[in-house]
């Protein structure tokens, strides 16, 4: 069945795009999850819609508008996170909502253009153009390079940022750089798989992987593998039963999430049972 589906270029592209998205989200999502930046990632992903509005309304190129705007939003959010941690969630919430509303009004006021909000939310992984595959390939290379180049710094910042600062690691600079990378990744991947799937891929695989990992690198590798598995399984199910692909992938990932929680529960139970013998 899957083999048959593979004859179609759109299916091959969907799988390739899914694998790249899994790799990028596996690496970046690990950083997002251990640093508890999920809300910030969600904020960037939604505020990016404002960038789409700006791009179409003012007639500037799509990538320039969305990347520029979400980078700006991400930098503001990072500054707030670094400056006043306890207020950060409130400000992120505001930027989240305002960006989204701006996008909708600007698109309403753009003559002759009608962007489907649903496609922003759930993407169109079955209609990935070749150009987007190249974007994702480039982004994968940048992500892997930055994560390995800055691995020890990222590890120290994520584990204990004060200690990292004390040891002379440029904590704030690296924070800005990496959150910038998160913003760029989110914008490029949203085009392919949609906002909801980006959030799912950034959170579910790293969360499962964290429990079984001894290091950040292992967590990144394990999340990537899990995400690839969810993507391919989801695509196959969507093809076989004629379902919306993005949503199917998310539900497969959710099933994996509950399975791992159940497994954990049983493991812990059997361990305590054993101890009580």
């Amino acid at each position: 069945m899957m083999i048959e589906a593979l004859q179609f270029e759109f299916m091959r592209n969907a799988i390739i795009a899914g694998c790249f998205a899994s790799l990028i989200c596996g690496v970046i999502g690990t950083f997002v999850v251990v640093n508890r930046l999920v809300f910030l990632a969600g904020g960037i992903a939604h505020a990016a819609y404002g960038g789409i509005g700006i791009a179409f309304f003012f007639g500037i190129p799509y990538m320039l508008g969305t990347l520029g705007f979400s980078l700006l939003a991400a930098m503001v959010m990072t500054a707030v996170v670094l400056k006043s941690k306890h207020r950060a969630d409130t400000f992120i919430g505001i930027i989240w909502a305002v960006g989204m509303a701006m996008g909708i009004i600007l698109l309403d006021k753009t003559p002759g253009y009608n962007v489907n909000l649903m496609s922003y939310l759930f993407g169109s992984i079955l209609a990935v153009p070749n150009s987007d595959i190249w974007w994702m390939l480039g982004l994968s290379v940048i992500t892997l390079f930055s994560a390995s180049f800055l691995y020890r710094d990222l590890l120290a910042i994520s584990y204990d940022d004060e200690f990292a600062k004390l040891r002379g690691v440029p904590v704030n600079l690296i924070y800005f750089l990496f959150i910038g990378l998160i913003a760029v990744s989110i914008v490029i991947i949203i085009r392919v798989v949609g906002l909801i799937l980006v959030i799912a891929l950034l959170t579910i695989p790293p969360y499962i992987a964290e429990k079984y990992s001894r290091s950040l690198a292992m967590m990144m590798a394990l999340s990537t593998m899990l995400a690839v598995f969810f993507n391919i399984t989801g695509l196959w199910l969507a093809y076989a039963y004629n379902l919306t692909s993005g949503a199917t992938i998310i539900l497969v990932a959710a099933a994996g999430f509950f399975l791992s929680m159940g497994l954990d529960f049983l493991l812990r139970k059997s361990r305590t049972d054993y101890q009580n013998l």
Binding site: V34, R152, D153, L155, A156, Y159, D160, F163, A164, R167, G168, V169, E210, S213, R214, S215, L216, M218, M219
Partner: peptide
């Protein structure tokens, strides 16, 4: 997810 060794190595940063 971090090993004892990796925590101690942090003392040698950067």
């Amino acid at each position: 997810p971090i090993s004892v060794m990796d925590v101690v190595l942090m003392g040698r940063l950067p």
